[in-house]
Amino acid sequence: MTLARRSLLAAPAILLALPARAQDAWPSRPIRMILPYAAGGATDVIGRLVADRLSQRLPQRVVMENRTGAGGAIGSSFVAKAPGDGHTLLFHNIGHAVTKAIYPQLDYDPAADLKAVSIVAESPMVLLVPPNSPHRTLADFVAFARANPEKLTYGSTGGGGALQLVSLLFLRAAGIKMTEIPYRGGAPAALDLAAGTLDMLYDAGLTAFGLARGGRARALAISGPSRSPVMPDVPTMAESGFPDATFMVWQAVLAPASTPDALVARIQAEVAAVLAEPTTRTRLAELGAERLVGNSPAEAQAFVAAEMAKWAVILREAGVRAG
């Protein structure tokens, strides 16, 4: 039985084991779930789905609120300084693990001032090349890049976003150097890739496979640990010879560090119950989430800490800092 499955099955038991006082006192008013990015992105859509399902379970509504800026630091800072009463939560993604490394002059400490409640979901990304690219396998692409340092280009949104992180991880694993081309979003980068003016782009599985099937890109590898049922002919990074380039975008619910452990456990139990719902699982799968987690606060906190340590090294080696 997988860790994610055990976590989801354990949720009702955790809920029943909590003291009655902790269960009865929360929530006493609407819950604000802060998302530190603009509306419309994958994390926003997944967060709103979770918030909506929580609203159906709880006696008070869960209202999603977008507070953008500084790579997610603005919204995260707001939650870090909020009272730890369970009425202000943060819905963040992998960007939470890199904020401190990229923005060293923060007015809060991502590791000390926020605690992970639960990891919600994980999704792979797909390495794409133009449809007219001469490279038909990842091995061919890497061989050319090694022989031509910095000649090839890749698209990135910078700021410690998923596009930048997965690209840096791949470059590190493959031992190659490419030229980063900044974009305001993945859509304009995809247009340049289709036109052949960009040599490589990672994209979320849901949209990447659409580009490949539509003939606007060629998929060379998927970053997840297993092949996707959507396009099972696309190999994983490990199968292509680069296991260290395995990468999953994750989302998590976090709370102010001052939130009592019993209350954090109650919130986690509700999140895990939502993720166990068949309708929620179906909808998240449609959004490209290949693994639903719902793990315990301790497991989530350990996972986030490991991610922070890993990305601090990678970003330092790449010389990535804000501005």
Rank of each mutant, 00 (worst) to 15 (best):
A22E: 15
T43K: 01
G323E: 14
Q60H: 06
G159M: 03
S223L: 11
A269K: 00
A265T: 04
T179C: 05
T246N: 00
L106S: 15
R136W: 10
R5P: 02
A4I: 01
Y103R: 01
D52W: 12
P130S: 06
D85I: 13
F170H: 04
G323T: 12
A219M: 04
P243D: 13
D24G: 02
D261I: 13
T259S: 09
A298H: 06
V166F: 03
G40W: 10
S123G: 07
D244E: 09
G161R: 05
A13G: 04
Q105I: 13
P149H: 04
W26A: 00
P36V: 14
V45G: 08
F242M: 06
G186M: 10
S167W: 02
A318S: 07
R57Q: 14
E286H: 09
G185Q: 11
N295K: 00
G155W: 02
T43W: 05
D109N: 12
Y108A: 01
Y183K: 00
S240D: 07
S258A: 14
A17W: 00
G241D: 10
D44E: 04
A190Q: 01
Q251V: 09
M125K: 15
P59Y: 13
Q56D: 07
D203G: 14
P110W: 00
M125Q: 12
A217C: 12
Q60Y: 04
A238N: 06
A143I: 04
A173H: 09
L18E: 08
G319R: 07
F242R: 02
E290L: 15
L191E: 05
A204R: 06
M200F: 08
G205P: 01
A82H: 14
S226P: 04
